[in-house]
Amino acid sequence: MNEQRTRQHLETEELERVAMQEGTLPAPRREHLDGCARCRRELASLEELHVALSGLPYHAPSPGFADAVMSRVDLAKPWYVQLLTRNWTPVAGVSAGALALAAIGFWTWLFTRGGVALESVLSVAAEWARTALWDLVVGAGRILVDTGIGPTAVEAAQSLTPGAAAAILAVLAVLGTLASVTVFKLMELPVPALGSARRS
């Protein structure tokens, strides 16, 4: 069998593999090549052609090619990517300016009325914040109790088998991981200022 393989002339694919340096020949084929003038001639001819073709330089398009392509490309961006990658600086600037003006105006109005002490203003504001937070917590608890969601959830949790509880925890863990990965992926998105053209 080996002897027969040694006698056979090389196939085009075998010659090509050697000429294009894509691999080596098994020993019997190499042996045949070394001793066969016809195969060596074919290999030399193929190598010559490959060198000529692979050495051809690339043609270059005009310098504005990349820009012309990019001006016509409509890269589809999901809404959350558009939201995260849009330039928020003007919006943030205008909002901060408006807020500052409103605060200065309010402060001026408050103190030009007279008889208003800074301590009393801060004390009232703190009381408002405390009350609002407490109302929020109490309100949320009341919704849970009044709608029956709270007691039902407690009952459901008590009736869970350890396996079901573990399954739910696993699902929550997977969802949590996916959420974290999504956040990290979004953080990797390019900042608009860095996304400007890099000439090829």
Binding site: V69, M70, V73
Partner: peptide, 27 residues
């Protein structure tokens, strides 16, 4: 990355393939 709307990734691909593709088509 391009599918996610990344323009720089698209530019990099254009930079890598503009000459090979152009040469193939030109020839």
């Amino acid at each position: 990355l391009c599918e996610g709307g990344d323009e720089r990734a698209a530019r990099e691909l254009v930079s890598r393939f503009e000459r090979p593709l152009f040469s193939l088509i030109r020839r």
